[in-house]
Structures are given as C-alpha cells and as structure tokens.
Simulated scan of single mutants.
Amino acid sequence: MYISITAQKLGGDYSQSSTDFVEYLEKENQSLEQESQEHFFNQYGDEIEAKDVVKEIDDNTAKLKKKEPKFYSITVSPSQFELRKLQNNSEDLKKYTRAIMNDYATSFNRDINGKPITVDDIKYFAKIEHQRTFKGTDKQVRENQPFATKILQLKQDIRKIENGQLEGDIKKLKFQISKLEAEAPHQQNGKRIVQGMKKEGNQSHIHIIVSRKDTFNSVSLSPGSKHKASEVVMHGKLVKRGFDRDSFFTKAESTFDKTFGYKRNYAESYKSKKDFIKNPKLYFTTLLGLPASEKAIAFKMLAKSGVPIASIPTNQVQLALKTIRYLKRGVEVAIKSGSIGI
C-alpha cells in the first residue's frame, strides 16, 4: 500500500480554486464511454458531478489566508498483491475509501464542540482511477532515455535525407532504429517504454480531495500540521492539536487487511518501512528470520520492486554495515513503490 498526503499547490500549476485539480482527476473519463466512467463520491453519496465538488471545496474556506492550502490531496495506491484480493475493483475501493476516511478522522487529536472528530466532520470527495502512465521521472523512462535520444537523431537524419538536406542510406538508418528499439533495457509488450505509455496490469488507485475546513466551515483540520498529536495550554485552557500520520497509515493498512482478509507479509508492511528507516540491521534480521514460505514471498516482493536480491545477506555474519549501505538505496526505492510501503 502506498499512501501520500499532499497540500494544495499554491501558484504554479494550481490556482486558489480547486478547479484545475478536479479537472485533472477527470482526465481518465475523457477517453471512456459514459457507462465506463468513474464519478466522484463521498461518505454517503455516489455519482457527484465535478462542478459540485469544485463548489463544495471552494466555498468551504472561511478565514483561510491566501497562502494557506484550501484542500489536501490523498492518493491511495494498493499494490498488485493487494489488488488481487478485490472482487470488484471499483466497489471494493469505494468501500475501502469510506473505511479509511473514518481512520483519517480519528487520527486528528482535536475536538469540535467538545466531541472527538468523526468522518461526519470531514468534507471530502474521492474518485477511483484504473490507469497509470509512465512519467519522465520513472526509472524505466530514464534508463531508456539514451536510446530514445539516439532514435530521435536517426529519425531526424531520415527526414533530412528525404528532404534532400543530407545524403545517406534510409534503409540502414531504419535498421539501426529497430535495433535500438529492441536493445532498450525496459520493454512492455515488446515495445520500448516511453513517457506517456500506459502501464500494463491492474493500476487501480484512489484520489481523495479533502477540504482544509470541517463540514461546517468553522474549524481548520490540517493533516500537514507540524504538531504531532499533543496537548498544549493556550489562554489558560488545555487544547488538543495535531494529526498523527503514523496512526493513520497504520490504521489504513489494518483496515485493508480486515476488510478484505489480506494476509500481509512483513516486507510490505508499514512496520518494515519504519524498521528500515530507524534500524536497517533489524529490518534485515527480521526479514531473514521469517518462516521459509513468508521469506520466499518477501523476496519475491522485493525483487519485483527492483532490489538486488542476490546481494541480500543470507546469514547473520553477512549483516555487515557495508552490505547494508550497499542495499540501502535499492530498498529505499522499493519501500517508496506501491508494493511495500506507505
């Protein structure tokens, strides 16, 4: 499971309104027939129109300063292993969204009118998407780039020959292009992976837009708060404050497992990420100590994420700091992937 929480961008791509972001989330529907389109939904409603989402979010910004985020974006990306447990991607992911928004609400260490925050206090809208495309920052695109550059140059040479600006053998240049296409290290369905190409397999994921203010437009609820769950005395009163991201991520993972009967492997758990960051040696020790069947699955998940499995220590003696440092970069990439991290 990979979950990210991002504040609204102020300036640049996004304006003070949520319009641009909502239109971005509508992009997938543009290429689909009406019956195949996914619509916005929230805790209690389905098929909410984009214009209504914009109005609800934009009108719910009382007393927020110009440079303060008006909303937050939560992206929830189950791994391929997790998606296989779903019977119906869209309906199951809607069910899961509504469940984790309860977890989101209870991760705020705040009271409203003397009562703990519940999902009824959260104004949000969500949308399921089923496609992803390769970005220019993806490893596959970056490592294919030298081939792409050479192919582009050859194609330009062919055009110059055709226009009489250059002499050369077009047939020979086309052969070189075909050879480079085949030699590119990252392929999908026999084709060189390029930016904008749709990723194969089940790519279902969830986008959630959450208002900064509560449903009554009276209290600011920021999941990006610098304050962890704590209490402070202000004006002589004890005030609760903060959002516990660690709690939210842990609950979201547990909610998925309980909802869909998913048996989570250590390598894909939130705990493993924390172990790796705080104590890499403990991470590898725990990995090696798993029962044989679970360890085999863990190594499969790591390999799928690009970790050099052959270099992972096989016994306690090999758990040297030098080996851990060598592996750290590979595991960091895997932990950020949708397979094994939040």
Rank of each mutant, 00 (worst) to 15 (best):
A252E: 01
K258D: 13
F276I: 02
S254L: 13
D275K: 01
T259Q: 15
Y270I: 07
S230T: 09
F243A: 00
T286E: 10
K240A: 09
S247T: 07
T259C: 10
A267C: 07
F216Y: 14
G224D: 12
F248H: 00
L238S: 09
T259Y: 07
S218A: 15
K271A: 14
R241D: 11
K251D: 08
V232A: 13
H235W: 11
A267M: 04
N265R: 00
K278D: 14
S254W: 05
F276P: 10
G242I: 02
K273C: 10
L221N: 03
G261S: 04
P280V: 07
V239H: 07
V233G: 02
M234T: 14
A229R: 04
S225R: 02
P291K: 11
N279W: 02
D246C: 03
G224H: 09
L238D: 04
D244G: 03
E231W: 10
S230A: 13
T215L: 15
D246I: 08
S218V: 15
G242P: 09
L221E: 07
H235Y: 12
F248Y: 01
H235S: 07
K251L: 12
R241K: 12
H235F: 13
A267D: 00
N265W: 00
K226N: 15
G242E: 01
K281Q: 14
M234A: 13
N279M: 05
I277S: 07
Y270P: 07
P291M: 11
K274L: 15
R241C: 14
F284D: 00
F284N: 00
T285A: 11
K228M: 10
L282R: 10
A267S: 12
S247G: 03
K228A: 12
H227C: 12
P291W: 05
L288G: 02
K226C: 14
N217T: 12
H227M: 13
T286K: 05
K228I: 13
K281T: 15
T259G: 08
K271P: 11
D246E: 06
K237P: 08
L287Y: 01
S222K: 09
K274T: 14
F256V: 03
A267I: 05
S225F: 01
L288Q: 08
K278L: 15
Y262D: 06
N217I: 13
T285Y: 11
V239D: 09
K278E: 14
K228D: 13
K274N: 14
Y270A: 07
G242T: 03
S225I: 02
K271H: 10
V232L: 10
M234I: 15
S230H: 08
G236Y: 08
F284A: 03
H227R: 14
H227D: 13
T286H: 03
Y262N: 06
L288N: 09
V232H: 09
F256G: 02
S247H: 04
G289H: 10
D275L: 05
